[in-house]
Amino acid sequence: MQSVPIPELSLAPVPVTDPLSAPSPAKEPAVGSPLVGIGLMLLACFLFSGLDATAKYLSQSVSPLQIVWVRFLSHVVLAVFFFRLWQRPEALRPKRRLLQVVRAFTLLCTTIFNFLAVQYLQLAETMSILFAAPFMVTALAGPLLGEWAGVRRWAAIIVGFCGVLLVTQPWSGQMHWAVIYSVCAMVSYAFYMLLTRMLAPTESSISLLMVSGVVAAIAMTPAGLMSWQAPESLFHWGLLLSTGVYGLVGHWILIVAHRMAPASLLAPFLYVQIIWMVILGYLVFDDIPGWSTVAGASVVVASGLYILFREQVLRKR
């Protein structure tokens, strides 16, 4: 679960499977083929879903804390070589260090809680709850950023949370206790999105990428070592190390997608991630979402799309 930027300060959900931040369109205008951009966005969502599915599979044999540690550590190592960071060390220097560190910890908390949740819940359930983060961002953007939501967006927020309640069904007495992990991941992710919005105008994409990854990797080292369990086979070793690849490649594709097409066009396609989650959940774990998950996810997606629509209307005005 990790970092992707909030292009154009959009409130669209960003995959929790990648700790980076896409470049701001103000700095890198989108040019190219919109259809290619959409295709890349769909591929990025698949990679982010693959990260969660891999974490869920590995959690059956190794500690989720170990997975989180290797996920960030391998991501940082790969990013150093992928972006040849030794050639431009100045790009790594954060301008607002304290906020960068706080942002890194919100991302780390999001990843930890999400990987703990997927141990027990279906992938579609965790993603449906996580997609409520933009509603929380919309609600908090007023007091924290001075961006107050109108009556229509508040109505969409309320409807969206009703969708989350449909997924979790706290009144049924059958709500799995691990839903608490997903809710904590959603809250952490909302603050991560807000901090990304605050930092995007002044920080480079590489700085946002590396600071969040390095801080998380260092912070998780004690827990990762204490909970270490050697993977059962070379296959499991490969899966463990692939978590960093999923995040890095997914993030890079996301950046390229935003260079091909405007963020306002790409943002709605982030919701396709829930479809990938359902497919992978069925193929890998034989999970079939219940009616409440399907209905709740539909409400959450519809509410999120409406908030995106209102964002675009207000921006044009």
Rank of each mutant, 00 (worst) to 15 (best):
I255S: 09
L283F: 15
S128K: 00
A219M: 10
S59D: 13
P15F: 11
I38L: 14
V256F: 11
L65Q: 08
V70H: 02
W276K: 08
W252Y: 15
V249Q: 06
A297V: 08
R84G: 09
S227P: 00
Q2T: 12
T110F: 02
W148N: 07
S59T: 10
I158G: 10
F269P: 01
V187K: 00
S128L: 01
F46A: 15
H236K: 12
G32M: 10
A155I: 12
L241S: 09
P23D: 05
Q2M: 11
M193R: 02
I255W: 06
D18G: 12
L99W: 03
T126G: 06
L241A: 13
M260W: 04
L265K: 12
Y246A: 02
L9I: 07
I129P: 01
A139D: 03
R197D: 04
A230I: 12
L107N: 01
A26R: 15
G213H: 02
Q100H: 05
L234R: 11
A200T: 04
A223Q: 06
A44H: 04
P13F: 13
A133S: 13
H251I: 14
S292E: 15
P5K: 10
Y192M: 14
H236I: 05
C109A: 14
I180M: 11
E90F: 03
P94K: 05
S298H: 10
C184G: 04
P222D: 15
Q87R: 15
T138F: 01
M226L: 14
T126S: 09
R310G: 02
L78Q: 14
A217V: 03
L145A: 10
W237I: 06
W276E: 09
L121T: 01
V31P: 02
V31A: 15
M193Q: 12
R88V: 09
Y246W: 15
L166P: 04
Y246K: 02
P231I: 09
H176E: 14
G39I: 11
L195A: 04
V137A: 03
L85Q: 09
T111R: 01
F269H: 10
I274S: 09
S63H: 12
P143W: 04
E232V: 10
L225M: 14
A219I: 06
V159R: 03
A124N: 02
Y306K: 09
G173C: 12
T54Y: 07
V249H: 07
S24H: 08
A155L: 13
G142D: 05
V102K: 01
A156N: 03
A26H: 14
G39D: 08
L265N: 05
E203F: 00
P29A: 13
A53L: 07
P268S: 14
L123V: 03
P7D: 13
R71W: 06
E147G: 00
F235K: 10
A302W: 09
L43P: 03
H75F: 15
S205M: 06
R152L: 06
W86D: 11
A263T: 12
P89C: 11
L73P: 00
R153D: 06
A185N: 04
R259I: 10
F113K: 00
V77M: 13
L254G: 02
